[in-house]
Amino acid sequence: MSDQVAIKTRGLAKAYGHVQALRGVDLEVKRAEIFGFLGPNGAGKTTTIRCLLDLIRPQGGTIRVLGLDPQVDPVAVRARTGYLPGELSLEANSKVEAALRYLNDLRGNKADWAYVRQLAYDLELDLTMPIKNLSKGNKQKVGVVQALMSRPELLLLDEPTSGLDPLMQQAVYRLLKEAKAAGATIFFSSHIISEVGAIADRVAIIRAGVIVEEAEPARLADITMRRVRIRFKQPVDPGPLADVRGVLLLSHINGLSATLQAEGEIDGLIKALAGFPVSDLEVDHPSLEEVFLAYYEAGQKEVK
């Protein structure tokens, strides 16, 4: 394995009873890159990350993390890796600082406590609070801090911004970019396309335990759909809007409002709307599952 590769999996397979969670995952993550791992719930993102840390054992395939086999040398892999679980659980009765100190103890007190305080400050996290009194978002901040505090070479983050408000999401993105600038490799899962697009250098999309796409985020725009809701000042015939390339009329109510699905760039739709008496316009990114459905319906690529 090249020194330039931080994570490499080949044919990774994992089943839970009769449920096949991973069906031959092939991944390659380069060092010092931010790699986004996109997929809907249950696609296999968490299972893949947990295999990389030897928390669960795959039934097939090979894994190399930082050049090491996690099943052979799990402690060495974990010593160089920071991990944020998808569902973070901590000792409810501990205070934040005690919980972080315990986790730091497990790392042989590697963390610089001034850096921990800096991270807590950046994320507006009170270290004196008992864990049980923290909101979901604040617990997530504890998870982010513990993953970053030892300045690991590799960060494995399962939905790192889950439960955080937009400001804190931005703060986390900033911290991840700083970690990357310091030479860390970041592998994070998400089901939010915009999040991955904002920070990832490369992206893999997993569905039903198989990687269906691996691309740079700019490429994601090609497969991204938007849902557009329009309210009109007076009744109109929204039919012509459906003639715009990539636009599908999903519904309309008495010509006073319409819901459209726009695939790819929406420049054509905006231009077409110039001729309509628009009173309000909402543009939503649909869920990844919806993107996938459109993706497959269009027959651009089949799930193997």
Binding site: R50, L53, L55, P74, V75, A76, R78, A79, T81, Y83, P85, E87, L88, S89, L90, E91, L103, L106, R107, G108, Q146, L156
Partner: peptide, 14 residues
């Protein structure tokens, strides 16, 4: 069962 072991065993402890 509380989900704590997942995080603990992700640290360099065998």
């Amino acid at each position: 069962e509380k989900g704590i072991l997942d995080l603990v065993l992700a640290h360099p402890v065998s």
